[in-house]
């Protein structure tokens, strides 16, 4: 098995747009935007690829902070940004096609933003 190199660069909300624009100017493709919640902190990963070289930008924000959308640079970002909004409840401003929370409708609002599901009942106790 070949272990791919994991390039990771930390960025701040202020430099987000600039860094993503630099990726696009470098002819890179947006692979995905993903989010992870670590305690009270959210990490948003922006992944790019060019000729099989995989690169990531990592934006770390506290909960409650708004993030600007990058869909003005890469249109396809709207899919991922709506998803992050619907699952984590992070406000992302200026999404090209903003579904305003209707992209993925879930029975619990912002399921990944709320407390861990470990505390819930085990499946045997569920109805």
């Amino acid at each position: 098995m070949i272990r791919e190199e994991q390039k990771m660069q930390d960025i701040t909300p202020d430099s987000l747009i600039r860094s993503v624009q630099a990726m696009k100017d470098g002819g890179k493709r947006l692979v995905q935007i993903g989010c992870a919640r670590i305690g009270d902190i959210f990490e948003i990963n922006y992944s790019f690829d060019k000729d099989y070289n995989f690169e990531n930008l990592k934006l770390t924000i506290p909960s409650g902070l708004e993030v600007p959308s990058v869909s003005g640079i890469y249109t396809c970002a709207f899919v991922y940004e709506n998803e992050i909004h619907d699952l984590y409840g992070i406000e992302i401003t200026g999404i090209a096609i903003d579904f305003k929370g209707t992209f993925i409708r879930t029975s619990i609002k912002y399921p990944f933003g709320v407390v861990s599901s470990k505390e819930e009942d085990a499946c045997q106790n569920k109805l």
Binding site: V31, Q32, G34, C35, A36, R37, I38, V79, E83, K118
Partner: peptide, 23 residues
């Protein structure tokens, strides 16, 4: 893409899948 973040326990901190259809 399968993004996996472990925290040193048996339970992962995060698993995210970006599937081809979404792209």
């Amino acid at each position: 893409i399968h993004y996996i973040k472990g925290n040193g326990t048996k339970f992962l901190a995060r698993h995210r899948v970006r599937t081809p259809t979404l792209a």
